[in-house]
Design a protein around this nucleic acid. Structure first.
Lengths: 291, 291
DNA sequence: ATTCATATGTGCATTATTGCATATTAAATT
DNA sequence: AATTTAATATGCAATAATGCACATATGAAT
């Protein structure tokens, strides 16, 4: 009689559309999911899914309870956050999420220090590109580059964000066309390029900041990058061009869900991160690298 | 990881106030409840109950999630009803509730017949005095004596309800004081008695209709009873007095929760009960017994 | 004080649930 | 048509959850 928990399985199958994908999300064997759904159907004498070749299709009956199930999920997430919010121990797990270059170039050492001083706190780092959901507790603390965070998150804006143009070659006042390393999404030549160079063309598209940096270093040309990354590496081959770009509207935030603001270890870690990042403010605002 | 189901245990302990009473309601061993609560506390690093001598007292943390838990319970009940409402089989369990004398004196034979014709339907009869909650599916069909049922129940008013006065002795026009068999709650002499008898007194208080009937038969005096009960027994010793009492404002209803109105076997059984009870309308309206 | 009744916690055997290996099925690819 | 791939189902062994018997504690009743 796993009465209420079966709804959790139902919801995931309904959402994922198949037993096997649901099982991956639920982190259990697919046979378990299958059996739970079967027993739920048997118990209520109702068929919940039509088994077609392309997965499980919700029946009318399943459709009728789907919204309730979603509601229950939200309530359970709320409960989870509320309880976590009451946790006063300086031990236990914390999950962090941040852009992976922020970890690699700014915080790896600091977090190692945090780990040394708080061995009871089990840090879990999630650096995937997708923006994690802090409501469903996919992560407890997020470091985000964003213009303004949503209301249900609390935290601090630790620094503004300065971008600059980088290249191996600082002498670009020739008539030779300038190669540009651009983001995959950028279909047209961006303003910062057409404004400062007579002639330019896309030499490479990338989807990742480290790759962009590597491309620049390899001689693909000019790229616009947030200063903190190239400046912290401080490689003499990759030079910052003496062109002042306008300050980005985005800034660096350290964020948690409101419900977790009083959770001892989360609060502690968040304050630690804020302190460390404030120290790096010149780096984020582009006042550190050589020109 | 019985994630969601643990909330069910939490809620019941919070409501019942102790492990052992919760375990009785949940129909599991008390050790199971105890262990579930402990693991929930451990998992979230929060104390949910203060163990005092007189049971488990909710902490602040528990209080913070109590309402959410109640909400989840309602949603789960809704799901249960919705799914049951889609059950098109003419087999499976049905739980019925009714006053026990209605079963005993009116419907026992009819339900036996129903059982014969539908052996696949497992009838469960609950005749306890408490009014069962049709929302939480404590019962699927209720036969109730009530002036008007709540909105969320559907069903039919199958008959009005007539009361009459019964006694072994029909010659009460003497000066001898008349003994009255009354309900435990009745503190004063009711109207029907003072209106029709010069002098009367409470000879016995009862809390049950069968007991009232037995008392009358044993010679305790006069009692006001719904006609269906004494009239169906038709015992020559227990005579209906030739006094016409006003028709009761209450009537006989056959009811189900709205969500169950299309459940095949519930619908079927409800219609069966309606038919059978309509046949007994003269009995309920007092046109059957001898005077 | 002693006994009783009630509530909760612990060790161990039983029972139920889960995962794994394997089979089956159907569509997609060659 | 043969092969591959992906999804779901089934038998059996490993694992986890449960109930039982017993132990402990605390207040109430004698």
């Amino acid at each position: 009689m796993n009465d209420w928990d079966d709804i959790r399985f139902f919801l995931e199958v309904a959402r994922a559309g198949s037993i096997s994908s649901a099982s991956k999300i639920l982190k259990v064997n697919h046979t378990t999911v299958s059996r739970r759904i079967h027993s739920l159907e048997k118990k209520h004498g109702v068929r919940l899914f039509e088994r077609s070749r392309d997965g499980y299709q919700m029946t009318e009956a399943a459709d009728a309870i789907y919204h309730q199930a979603l509601e229950i999920e939200l309530q359970n997430q709320q409960i989870s956050r509320t309880l976590f919010g009451q946790d006063t121990r300086l031990e236990g797990p914390i999950s962090l999420t941040m852009p992976h270059d922020i970890f690699e170039y700014c915080l790896a050492k600091d977090l190692a220090e945090f780990h040394q001083t708080h061995p009871g706190i089990q840090l879990k780092l999630i650096v995937g590109k997708g923006v994690l959901n802090l409501s469903s507790r996919e992560a407890d603390i997020a470091i985000r580059l964003t213009p303004s965070p949503p209301d249900y998150l609390v935290g601090r804006e630790v620094s503004g964000l300065q971008h600059a143009l980088y290249s191996t070659d600082t002498n670009l006042n020739t008539n030779k066309p300038v190669g540009l390393v651009l983001w995959g999404g950028e279909t047209t030549i961006p303003k910062w390029a057409s404004q400062h160079f007579n002639e330019c063309y896309a030499s490479l598209y990338v989807d990742d900041l480290s790759s962009m940096y590597a491309a620049v270093k390899a001689g693909f040309g000019v790229a616009r990058m947030p200063c903190y990354m190239p400046d912290s590496l401080n490689n003499p081959l990759v030079r910052k061009l003496p062109i002042q770009l306008p300050r980005s509207e985005w800034s660096v935030w350290v964020l948690s869900h409101v419900d977790l603001r009083k959770t001892a270890r989360v609060q502690h870690c968040r304050e630690f991160l804020v302190t460390k990042l404030l120290n790096k403010k010149p780096l984020f605002e582009g006042q550190k690298g050589q020109t």
